[in-house]
Amino acid sequence: MRFGILAVFLTAATLWGCGSTADREASGPAAGDAGAAAASGTTAGEGIASTELSTQPAVPPGTPEDFVVNVGDRVHFGFDRFDLTEEARGVLRGQAEWLKRHVSITVTVAGHADERGTREYNLALGERRAISVRNFLIALGVEPDRIRTVSYGKERPVDPASTEEAWAQNRRGVTQVDISSLRVSN
């Protein structure tokens, strides 16, 4: 059974990974109701009606993709800042609820910075961002030992372009479900 779930996840994750960064970011809000068959209109012609089916299959709850698609795995930060915006707090409230529903799952919060800082300072800044996320999740009741942090500084941009938009996407804290914790979950 578990392998089945994992297989679905891996397939979905593979498909997911094929999309560009822009696709991924844009699909965030709309993906919330991806479980329902999203009909995008019907066409009547010569007695045949066709319905466009959602390309996205239902997401099994409690999986990493459930977390990414239905909760949102990341929050963004202002330039050289590590405080949480109201929008970020909303995302993290969702993450905390999800983590409280799936109590055996542990996560790693990765803090990232844009390319407009120096390498070592950005490592420290990424650490601050990851800790901001972690502390907020703990304040909402998630057990501290379920949340590890890591900073990648400016080493792992999601968008490699040198634009304000790309930099805004890259200044982020990403909560990732630890795959190892799935194997011990029910």
């Binding site: 590590f82 420290a124 650490e127 601050r128 800790i131 502390n135 900073s151």
Partner: peptide, 9 residues
């Protein structure tokens, strides 16, 4: 070197 503890380097 630097060491980060609870976000503080």
């Amino acid at each position: 070197m630097s060491m980060a503890r609870n976000g503080n380097s």
